[in-house]
Design a protein around this nucleic acid. Sequence first.
DNA 1: AATGAATGAGGATTCATTCAT
DNA 2: GATGAATGAATCCTCATTCAT
Lengths: 193, 193, 193, 193
Amino acid sequence: MPKLGMEPIRRAALVKATIDEIGAAGSLDVTVSQIAKRAGVSSALAHHYFGGKEQIFLAAMRHVLAVYAAEVRGALGMAQTPRARIEAIVKAGFGSSNFRREVVASWLNFYVLAQVSDEARRLLNVYQGRLHSNLVYNLRPLVGDRSDDVANHLGALIDGIYLREALGTQVPNGKKATRQVLAAFELELGTQA
Amino acid sequence: MPKLGMEPIRRAALVKATIDEIGAAGSLDVTVSQIAKRAGVSSALAHHYFGGKEQIFLAAMRHVLAVYAAEVRGALGMAQTPRARIEAIVKAGFGSSNFRREVVASWLNFYVLAQVSDEARRLLNVYQGRLHSNLVYNLRPLVGDRSDDVANHLGALIDGIYLREALGTQVPNGKKATRQVLAAFELELGTQA
Amino acid sequence: MPKLGMEPIRRAALVKATIDEIGAAGSLDVTVSQIAKRAGVSSALAHHYFGGKEQIFLAAMRHVLAVYAAEVRGALGMAQTPRARIEAIVKAGFGSSNFRREVVASWLNFYVLAQVSDEARRLLNVYQGRLHSNLVYNLRPLVGDRSDDVANHLGALIDGIYLREALGTQVPNGKKATRQVLAAFELELGTQA
Amino acid sequence: MPKLGMEPIRRAALVKATIDEIGAAGSLDVTVSQIAKRAGVSSALAHHYFGGKEQIFLAAMRHVLAVYAAEVRGALGMAQTPRARIEAIVKAGFGSSNFRREVVASWLNFYVLAQVSDEARRLLNVYQGRLHSNLVYNLRPLVGDRSDDVANHLGALIDGIYLREALGTQVPNGKKATRQVLAAFELELGTQA
DNA sequence: AATGAATGAGGATTCATTCAT
DNA sequence: GATGAATGAATCCTCATTCAT
């Protein structure tokens, strides 16, 4: 029983299904049919709405990045001091939702996609740029001129620790990850005195 | 006219071809035929020697990790002090050979593979463990008890910076990357005083 | 906001769009969606009006034949003598409108369709029969008993020359084509003397 | 049980199957799978040897044209005088083999293909050029300067009559077709006197 | 040791057609 | 009267893999 205005609903369902399917496979080796079936529609419809497989992936990537950005924004909103905001950004990155199978898989595969797809690389750089800006802005009152360098340090450290936690043999430990980054942060602050 | 003792030569050629092909594609979406053609043999031979596609990938992964390990070993051999050895390890990771298209592609794709393939994850953990040991061992004289934490800090930072350089919009800059990690190292040393 | 009496307008638009689309593709490999989009309606409507793809094609074929028949009729109306009427028929066949991309494509594809579709073959034979009758009728005063043979000669020659002009490497030249057929006509007349 | 040197055998079988399949369908709406099945191989093999559907069609077209050319050559070889050679060319064109379902279908569809595919148009023009040369050459001793015009007349007439016989309601009649063209030939000769 | 031959399984994509609104 | 929604069935093409030689 076809209704009107189904498009946004279907698109959302397909994006969700794509992320889940990538999570289940661990890679982008996912067929449009699998995605469509998980979303409860035909593969033809997926093509109808997105135009092709690559665009489905990009939509999924956009979604993951948007969710992450929203989490960071939410965390920032509650923090009052620069220092608290830095901590909020770090914590947000290591929230348990970011260690869910499908989110990890999405990130890793987006890294791969970014090598080849201009649009994917662009999206990734936008996200990294925003994170960097946030850090720089809040670091300025604390470390002044060094805020750019420190932001690079913390930003890269977040990525590196995320990678290790995500691919380690043990269950990812967000708390420990957060602690590690904040320790580096304290270190940088200590040099100010 | 088949020669004797061709096996190791063929295997090496196929591994090399696999890495190059992954580099050219940016992903593991490479066909055995492409690999075989690049190696100058038939695809049937590739199967004959490796048994299947996954095993070809694992052999390639082993090769990349081995080359990296050799570079580190080589760099360590020339360094006399713990501090020099730490620096050598960092520098080795950011040598220009590690930023070659195909090496970057290999690493990123091995991360992806590691989610799914037990053998791949094992290989990755072995490499990370060895790197960690090296760091811990050489950090001990410098930071004592904290050597494990510091090694985690530096190890993750190396990975994170590598990722950002590899996927940035600019040409990767190994010198800058090295400087960034060593700055963090100095920071950690500074706390000793 | 549907209007009343839209049906004939829609049908005409769809027939026109079909012919144009066949012209653009050069073949019957055109989708109902393409046709419908060109006509500015939904593909569902095209089905609604015509019942299916084949019927859309047949309607287009009928249209092309009807236009051609009308051109011939128009030309005949102005000619006063049998000889002038023969010339008019020939000229009408090689008018520039008949060498438009989409008209050529229509004819060639109708030949193909005529092998398979009974209705298409019937339409084609009706057209050929009418042309033949016209020729025979007007040839009678000029060549008497031989009018049937001469009509076959001229009719086939028209088709053959049309084919060659339409598919040649050069831009079709209706004047030259006309001259060639009329030369054959004169030849046939000459034998009377 | 794979043998060596199968390629030419498979190619020939696939070309034959293509022509037959086009004949059965009456159009180029034939799937690679149908063709392959008729040739007794997998569709994958068809792609392997030809690269794609269009190339299969072109190979089939080349074959049909080559067969026709061979028939003309054969007929020409036995004729001693220019006049006999003209007659041989005409007769060859209307031999019963050329009215076989699949040959007719091939020709009609190649006309269609020639509008779109450069290679197809080229092939068709080569064939027409060769026919024309043959006619011109043998007409020269008979009609002198007019040989080019007469060749055009006869060539186009052959095509036109072929078309009408092939698409008529009655069984094609090669004898009658031949007679018709030769009558036009006599007409042209008569003007010489 | 090495390969040409061959294929089954699948995968992205297209499309005519249907249907509820 | 008209359409957006939806799909089943195909179609081209690819590819890992097998096998006889």
